[in-house]
Simulated assay, not measured.
Amino acid sequence: MSRYLLNKFLYTVDRDPELVERYREDPAGTVAWWEAERANAILNCHSGERSSWLEFEDAERQALSTHDYPKLFELGAHPFLTLTLFIALFERDHEPLGFQREYARRLAHFSLPYPDIAT
């Protein structure tokens, strides 16, 4: 499992309003496209340098493709990256602070120690 790649997806999608909308409307397609086109791009590098070995594991791909943020948390995705992206995706569908409450409710079954988020 690559927490780095999982967090890189959350970080890069959250910072691009067009990708946020694309991910909202077509999560599986966006994940497949991002994995093929962006996963191996060097983060914050504009010179075209790429690696060649990064890919999601099936559980990561499945959780991303279904917007399953409790599973992402369980897999070690950083909770701040997950929360900010999913606020961008779904806050508009809830009353003020409604999504944040839903997020907390769906993660309430986790107890300390939380899953390791180190990359």
Rank of each mutant, 00 (worst) to 15 (best):
66 T>I: 02
27 P>V: 04
16 D>S: 14
34 W>D: 08
67 H>M: 08
8 K>G: 02
40 N>T: 04
26 D>Q: 14
20 V>W: 08
113 P>Y: 03
57 E>V: 05
53 W>T: 13
99 F>L: 06
2 S>K: 11
52 S>Y: 12
11 Y>S: 14
80 F>Q: 14
69 Y>L: 05
15 R>L: 14
92 R>N: 10
104 A>L: 10
64 L>Y: 01
54 L>S: 13
15 R>M: 12
41 A>I: 00
63 A>R: 04
41 A>T: 08
40 N>P: 00
113 P>M: 11
72 L>M: 08
68 D>W: 05
50 R>G: 09
68 D>P: 07
68 D>R: 04
84 T>K: 15
69 Y>S: 02
11 Y>W: 14
115 P>H: 01
59 A>T: 10
96 P>L: 11
53 W>S: 14
52 S>I: 01
12 T>E: 15
74 E>A: 15
28 A>P: 09
45 C>I: 05
53 W>M: 08
36 A>V: 01
1 M>L: 11
78 H>I: 04
23 Y>M: 05
15 R>D: 15
75 L>C: 10
113 P>D: 03
44 N>K: 09
5 L>F: 04
52 S>D: 10
22 R>M: 07
37 E>A: 12
92 R>G: 15
9 F>I: 01
70 P>T: 03
50 R>H: 12
24 R>A: 11
99 F>K: 03
13 V>C: 11
103 Y>W: 11
45 C>A: 12
44 N>D: 14
18 E>C: 00
102 E>T: 11
68 D>L: 01
63 A>L: 07
32 A>E: 13
11 Y>V: 11
48 G>F: 07
4 Y>C: 06
35 E>K: 09
56 F>N: 07
73 F>H: 08
78 H>G: 00
98 G>P: 13
50 R>V: 12
100 Q>H: 10
62 Q>P: 00
61 R>S: 02
95 E>T: 12
25 E>K: 15
35 E>F: 08
6 L>W: 02
6 L>D: 04
72 L>H: 03
60 E>M: 04
55 E>P: 00
4 Y>F: 12
119 T>A: 06
33 W>D: 13
34 W>P: 04
89 L>C: 00
101 R>I: 09
109 H>C: 01
71 K>Q: 14
11 Y>K: 15
14 D>R: 15
100 Q>K: 14
66 T>L: 05
4 Y>N: 02
70 P>W: 07
40 N>H: 00
82 T>M: 09
31 V>G: 04
38 R>P: 04
30 T>A: 05
7 N>T: 03
22 R>D: 00
67 H>I: 08
48 G>E: 06
53 W>Y: 14
52 S>M: 02
65 S>M: 05
104 A>D: 06
92 R>F: 01
77 A>T: 06
81 L>N: 12
45 C>K: 09
83 L>R: 10
6 L>A: 01
28 A>E: 15
44 N>V: 02
76 G>W: 11
23 Y>T: 05
3 R>S: 03
36 A>R: 14
46 H>S: 10
106 R>I: 00
73 F>C: 02
70 P>D: 01
115 P>T: 04
107 L>R: 00
41 A>V: 06
32 A>C: 05
99 F>V: 03
